[in-house]
Computed example of a mutant assay.
Amino acid sequence: MSSRSPARPRRHRIVASLLLVPLFAAPAAAQRPFDTGTTVGVEAAVASLVALVVGGGLLAFAPTYTGRTTRRITEDPGETFVYGVGLGVAVVVLVVVLVLTVVGSLLVIPLAVVVAVAGTLGYLAAGRVVTDSRPLVLLVAVFLAVAVAVVPLLGGLLGFVLSSLGMGAAYLDYRDDGASTGDGTPGG
Rank of each mutant, 00 (worst) to 15 (best):
L172A: 08
T185V: 13
V92C: 10
G127P: 02
E75T: 02
V21P: 00
L87S: 14
L20P: 03
V115G: 00
R8L: 15
A45L: 14
L87P: 00
P135L: 12
L162D: 13
L158V: 14
G37L: 00
A25K: 00
V114T: 05
V85N: 09
A145G: 12
P22Y: 09
S163Q: 13
T69M: 11
E43F: 08
A149M: 12
V85T: 00
T80M: 02
V130R: 06
V93F: 12
P33G: 10
L139Q: 07
E75S: 12
E79W: 04
T74C: 02
S3Y: 06
T185L: 15
L23R: 00
G55L: 10
L162I: 09
S5T: 12
G159K: 09
D183E: 06
R175M: 08
D177L: 07
R32L: 15
D132F: 01
V99I: 13
R72H: 05
V91P: 04
V15K: 06
V21S: 04
T39E: 10
D35A: 15
V113Y: 13
G55H: 09
A126L: 12
G56E: 01
R128L: 07
S164W: 02
G84D: 01
V96C: 00
A30C: 03
A125D: 11
G187S: 10
Y174S: 14
V91R: 00
D177A: 14
L138A: 10
G159Y: 07
A147Q: 13
L136H: 03
R68D: 15
V151Q: 08
M1W: 03
R134T: 12
L157I: 15
G78N: 01
A112H: 00
G184W: 10
L58Y: 08
A44T: 13
S2N: 13
P152N: 13
P135F: 15
V140T: 13
V99R: 09
L157S: 11
G188C: 00
R10F: 14
V108R: 04
M167A: 11
L107D: 00
R128T: 15
F34V: 13
V148H: 01
V140E: 09
L58W: 12
G122I: 04
L154M: 05
G184I: 05
P22F: 14
S2L: 04
Y123S: 05
R175A: 15
V91N: 07
L94H: 01
G104A: 07
L94Q: 03
V108Y: 03
G182T: 11
R8S: 11
A26W: 14
V82W: 13
F160H: 08
R32S: 03
A169Q: 01
D176Q: 14
Y83K: 06
L153N: 09
V102M: 03
T131A: 09
G188H: 13
L138Y: 10
P110Y: 06
L107V: 02
V102L: 15
S2V: 06
F34S: 14
T69Q: 04
V113L: 14
T185D: 14
L59S: 09
A141Q: 11
